[in-house]
């Protein structure tokens, strides 16, 4: 680096320091952000791993890893779907009563009476369908890239758990509109569970909270859909993302020809 350029850079940095010094010297600010201005490599690294929302990210990412065609962002998009589903789901809960006399009517009210109800319900429904598709495609991508191979075997297992949780969320949510489609889909699903050898009957009984799809089944599916499964999914997602970093970041195919650009 030439001397003049370095002098200009230092001057620029000093100027920014002057403007931000007041803010960065502030005790409250320093209690929130432990690091100084992100103008050195050390502070840039600190900005990432001392931030709760960024700490699962590696401090440095290889350029190849963030290329769209490398992953098609399928995992991230699944996460976006989950976020959309959480927000729209919470809003729908404000108008939905999980009881036999009210469930169907509340669903109809959401569509025809509540302001923006149709939009939110459709957003929830479509995000759910898209999420199942995205999670599946994410698995396919990981499989064909061979990204499940050591040292990432356990993260593949976590991924399978996440897929199962996604499908279960989809299934439990299916009953909540309490229309004919919901009723018979869950009837069929519960009878499929009955096919499990030896304990099939007991599984079905526990699943429905009775011998038929009724009030108990509705409240069970509601609690699973709104509390148990989303919490489980959130926990396993956190573990899954953390493992991605701990297993050495994104799996990348080896570069052809050694010694050139290096593993960037």
């Amino acid at each position: 680096m030439s001397e003049t350029k370095e002098t200009t850079l230092t001057a620029e940095r000093e100027k920014r320091r002057g403007l931000m010094a007041l803010l960065h010297g502030n005790r409250v600010f320093r209690s929130l952000f432990r690091h100084g201005l992100p103008d050195t490599n050390r502070n840039r690294a600190l900005a990432t791993f001392s931030n709760f929302f960024l700490h699962v990210q590696p401090v440095k990412v290889r350029l190849r890893a963030i290329k769209f065609t490398q992953t098609f962002y399928l995992g991230g998009l699944s996460l976006v779907c989950f976020g959309t589903l959480t927000i729209t789901g919470i809003l729908l809960m404000f108008y939905y009563h999980p009881s036999v006399p009210r469930a169907y009517e509340d669903m109809k009210d959401l569509q025809f009476v509540v302001s923006s109800g149709t939009f939110l319900r459709n957003l929830h429904r479509w995000s759910a369908h898209v999420m199942v598709a995205l999670v599946f495609l994410h698995m396919v991508r990981v499989f064909f890239a061979g990204a499940y191979k050591p040292p990432r075997e356990f993260n593949w297992v976590l991924g399978v758990i996440l897929f199962v949780l996604t499908v279960l969320l989809s299934y439990t949510g299916y009953l909540l509109p309490w229309d004919q489609l919901a009723y018979w889909a869950v009837t069929v699903g519960a009878n499929m569970a009955k096919a499990v050898p030896v304990m099939g009957e007991d599984i079905r009984f526990l699943m429905l909270g009775g011998t038929e799809v009724g009030e108990n089944a509705l409240i069970r599916f509601y609690v699973l859909h709104c509390v148990v499964l989303p919490l489980a999914l959130t926990g396993v997602i956190a573990l899954h993302l953390w493992r991605v970093r701990k297993d050495g970041g994104l799996h990348l195919p080896p570069l052809k020809g050694k010694g050139g650009e290096g593993d960037r």
Partner: peptide, 11 residues
């Protein structure tokens, strides 16, 4: 604005 309108019941 949409959220507030959603939260205010019409019936």
């Amino acid at each position: 604005v949409t959220l507030l309108r959603f939260m205010s019941p019409n019936v």
